[in-house]
Lab assay of single mutants.
Amino acid sequence: MKTQEELTEIVRDHFSDMGEIATLYVQVYESSLESLVGGVIFEDGRHYTFVYENEDLVYE
């Protein structure tokens, strides 16, 4: 089982391919040991929310 830090790094690596990240945040109250819920804001102003669970990243 991966730690929350490892899950965060996986998500950061994925989004870094889309541009320069200004902020990546995790909603700790919605996340667990198996899933990571949060959002990412890019330097150009784009903002996505995401759920990473079971090695699957869903964002909008």
Rank of each mutant, 00 (worst) to 15 (best):
Q4I: 08
V26Y: 04
E43P: 04
T8Q: 13
E20D: 13
N54R: 14
H14S: 08
G38F: 03
G39R: 11
L57F: 09
V26A: 04
E6L: 07
H47T: 10
D17F: 11
E55M: 11
V40R: 00
Q27H: 15
D56C: 10
E20F: 12
T49P: 03
Y52P: 00
M1N: 13
S31A: 12
S35K: 13
I10H: 10
E6N: 05
E53Q: 08
T3L: 05
F50R: 00
G19A: 04
R46W: 04
S35C: 06
G45V: 01
V28Q: 14
T8H: 06
H47E: 15
Q27M: 12
D17E: 11
E9G: 11
D13K: 14
E20V: 15
Q4R: 06
Q4P: 11
M1V: 08
V51N: 07
I10G: 04
E60A: 12
V40H: 00
Y52V: 05
L33W: 10
I10P: 02
N54H: 12
T8I: 15
E30A: 08
Y25Q: 04
V58N: 10
V11M: 05
Q27W: 06
V40E: 00
L57E: 01
E9Q: 12
G39D: 05
M1W: 15
F42W: 03
V40S: 00
V37M: 15
E34A: 15
E20T: 11
V28T: 12
D56L: 14
L24D: 01
L57Y: 04
R46E: 05
H14F: 15
V37I: 09
Q27L: 09
I41G: 03
Q27V: 10
D17A: 14
F50C: 01
K2H: 13
M18S: 04
D13E: 11
N54T: 05
E30H: 12
Y59P: 03
D56K: 14
D17H: 13
G19I: 01
A22L: 10
S16P: 02
K2L: 07
E6P: 02
D44N: 06
R46M: 09
N54M: 09
R12M: 12
Q4D: 04
S32N: 13
L36C: 04
R46Y: 04
L36M: 13
T8Y: 08
L57W: 04
T23F: 07
L24F: 14
L36N: 01
T3M: 04
F15E: 01
F42V: 00
I21L: 07
M18W: 14
L7T: 03
I21D: 01
V28M: 15
Y48I: 12
K2S: 07
T3N: 13
G19D: 02
E30Y: 04
I10F: 12
E60Q: 15
Y59S: 05
E34Y: 05
D13C: 07
H47A: 11
Q4K: 12
V40K: 00
E6T: 08
V26I: 15
H14V: 12
D56A: 09
E43M: 13
V11W: 02
T3Y: 04
F15P: 00
T3D: 08
S35D: 03
S16N: 12
V51L: 11
D56P: 02
H14P: 02
M1H: 11
E34G: 11
V26L: 06
G45S: 05
S16A: 12
S31I: 08
L7M: 11
D17S: 15
E30T: 14
L24T: 03
H47N: 06
F42M: 11
D44G: 03
F15I: 03
L57H: 02
L7S: 02
Q27G: 13
F42N: 00
E55F: 12
T8M: 13
G38H: 01
A22D: 09
L33F: 11
S16V: 11
F50K: 00
T49F: 05
R12Q: 06
D17P: 10
Q27C: 08
G38L: 02
R12G: 04
I21G: 03
Y25L: 03
I21E: 02
V37N: 07
H47R: 12
Y48A: 03
V26C: 05
H14Q: 10
G38Q: 01
Q27F: 09
D13T: 13
A22K: 15
T3R: 07
Y29V: 06
Y25N: 04
V11E: 00
F50N: 00
V11I: 15
E9S: 13
G19K: 01
S35M: 08
T49I: 06
K2T: 08
V28C: 07
M1A: 14
G45R: 03
S16T: 10
V26F: 06
H14R: 12
Q27D: 10
L24Y: 04
V40D: 00
Y59R: 03
Y29N: 09
E5Q: 09
G38M: 01
E34W: 08
D17C: 12
V40A: 04
H14N: 10
G45L: 04
V11F: 03
T23C: 08
S35T: 13
V40L: 05
S31T: 10
F15M: 11
G39L: 11
V51E: 06
L33S: 12
D44R: 00
G38W: 02
G39C: 06
Y52T: 02
H47Y: 12
T8L: 13
F15C: 02
L33D: 12
R12A: 09
G38R: 00
Y29K: 08
I10W: 14
E55V: 06
D44S: 05
L7G: 02
E55R: 11
V26M: 04
S31D: 11
G45K: 04
I10T: 08
L33G: 11
F50D: 00
Y48R: 00
G45A: 04
D17R: 15
S32D: 10
V40N: 01
E5Y: 10
L24R: 00
E55W: 10
E34L: 11
H14D: 03
T49Y: 08
H47Q: 12
V28H: 10
E9W: 15
F15W: 03
N54Q: 14
E9M: 09
N54V: 05
Y25E: 05
D44Q: 01
V58W: 08
I41S: 05
S32Y: 07
A22F: 08
G39H: 06
E9K: 12
D56H: 13
E30Q: 11
Q27E: 11
G39W: 05
Y48V: 06
M18I: 09
T3S: 11
L24C: 03
I21M: 04
E53A: 14
L7C: 03
G38S: 00
V28E: 15
